[in-house]
C-alpha cells in the first residue's frame, strides 16, 4: 500500500467527520452533531484498544473496564463537586471538580493504574486465557458498580450538566464536538509517534515473535504491560468524554457489550491501522442510525454484516479501502 494513498484516505476520514459536524451545525441538526461527537469519542476508545490489540497482539476483551472507570471518574468528581460532599478528607480535602482540565488527567491516571493492575496479572497468561481473564476483570468491576449503591448502583449516576472547559460553552453541541475532535487528533498523533518509536518497534516485534525479542535483551512482559497501561489510559479518557456527552454514567458502560463494541470498532476498521478505529466507529454508528431507521431489530442486521466482514473481509474497512484504491488507481 502506498503511503500517500493511505494518507489520502485518512485525511478524507478526519475531514469528513469535521465537515459533517460543521454542516449539521449550520443546518441546526444537533442530533447529527451528537452522532459525530460519539464517533470521535468511540474512535479514541478504539485507538486505545488498537495499541494493545492491533500493535501488541493483546486481545483484551475487558476494555470496558477502562472506558467505564474513566466514565465513573468523571461522574463521581462532578457529583461531589455539585453536592459539596468531600470525596476525600485525607491527606487533603478534595471535593471533586467540574473542570474537564482536571477531570481528564485524573480519569487517565485512574484507568492507567487499573490497567497496570489488571495487566500485571493478565499478562502472565496468553491466548484464550488472556482474553478470558481480561473479560473477567471487567465483569468484576461491572458487578461491583451494579451492587455498590453510593454512586447510583444499577440506576447509574446523572451529572445533569456538562463539566466546564475554559472559554468554551460545553453545552453547545458543536463546541463540545470540537473539544472531542481536537482530543481525537491529539490521540491520533500521539499514537502514530508511539507506534514508530523504539517502544513501538519493540511492541510490534513482540506481537510477532516473543522469543526473538527476548533474545535481543528486551523484556517482553514489560513492553506489553506498558502498552496495556497506555492503552487503558487512552480508553479511560474516552470514557470520561462519553459521560460528559450523555451527562450520565451507568454500569452499562462497564458491560462486556461495551468491550465487544470497542473491539468491533477496531476490527471493523482494520486491526493495526492508525485510523482503523475511526473508520470502524464511524461505520458502526452510521450503521446503527441507518439500520435503526428501518427496523427495531437493527442489531440482528448489524450482526449479520459483522459476520460477513469477519468471514470475507478480515482486514477490515481500511484494508478493503486500501486494496480497492490500489487496484483501481
Amino acid at each position: 500500500m502506498s503511503i500517500t494513498k493511505s494518507n489520502a484516505i485518512n485525511t478524507l476520514l478526519i475531514a469528513g467527520l469535521l465537515f459533517a459536524a460543521l454542516c449539521a451545525h449550520v443546518l441546526s441538526e444537533p442530533f447529527i452533531i451528537t452522532m459525530a461527537t460519539k464517533i470521535a469519542i468511540f474512535a479514541i476508545a478504539g485507538i486505545g484498544l488498537n495499541l494493545a490489540l492491533g500493535y501488541g497482539g493483546l486481545v483484551s476483551f475487558g476494555h470496558a473496564a477502562f472506558f467505564g472507570i474513566g466514565g465513573y471518574v468523571c461522574g463521581i468528581l462532578a457529583s461531589h463537586a455539585r453536592n459539596f460532599e468531600p470525596l476525600t478528607t485525607w491527606p487533603f480535602e478534595f471535593s471533586g471538580t467540574t473542570s474537564m482540565l482536571v477531570i481528564w488527567p485524573i480519569a487517565i491516571f485512574v484507568s492507567s493504574l487499573l490497567a497496570l493492575l489488571i495487566g500485571a496479572i493478565s499478562l502472565r497468561t496468553t491466548g484464550v486465557y488472556f482474553i478470558m481473564i481480561t473479560l473477567a476483570f471487567a465483569q468484576m468491576i461491572f458487578y461491583f458498580a451494579i451492587s455498590w449503591p453510593t454512586y447510583g448502583g444499577e440506576d447509574g449516576l446523572p451529572t445533569y450538566v456538562r463539566n466546564s472547559f475554559p472559554g468554551v460553552n460545553t453545552l453547545n453541541p458543536i463546541e463540545y464536538f470540537l473539544i472531542c475532535f481536537v482530543l481525537l487528533l491529539i490521540t491520533l498523533i500521539l499514537c502514530s509517534i508511539i507506534v514508530n518509536s523504539r517502544f513501538g518497534l519493540a511492541l510490534q516485534a513482540a506481537r510477532q515473535n516473543v522469543r526473538r525479542v527476548t533474545s535481543v535483551g528486551i523484556d517482553v512482559y514489560k513492553v506489553k504491560l506498558v502498552a496495556f497501561v497506555i492503552s487503558g489510559g487512552i480508553t479511560g479518557l474516552a470514557g470520561a468524554l462519553y459521560t460528559d456527552l450523555n451527562r450520565f454514567v451507568s454500569p452499562s458502560v462497564l458491560s462486556w457489550h461495551t468491550s465487544g463494541e470497542i473491539m468491533i470498532f477496531v476490527i471493523l476498521g482494520g486491526v493495526a491501522h492508525l485510523f482503523g478505529p475511526l473508520a470502524g466507529a464511524a461505520l458502526f454508528i452510521v450503521l446503527e442510525f441507518v439500520l435503526g431507521g428501518f427496523t427495531e431489530y437493527w442489531q440482528m442486521w448489524l450482526g449479520a454484516l459483522l459476520l460477513l466482514v469477519v468471514l470475507y473481509a478480515p482486514k477490515g474497512l481500511m484494508g478493503a479501502l486500501n486494496a480497492s484504491w490500489r487496484s483501481h488507481g
Partner: peptide, 25 residues
Amino acid sequence: VNEFNALQNVLLAVQGASGETFSFF
C-alpha cells in the same frame, strides 16, 4: 520478526543491546 524488513530486524537488536526500549517519542 517476519513482518519487519531485514534492517528493522537488526535495528531491533541494536535497540535491545542499547537497553533503551522505553523511549516513546
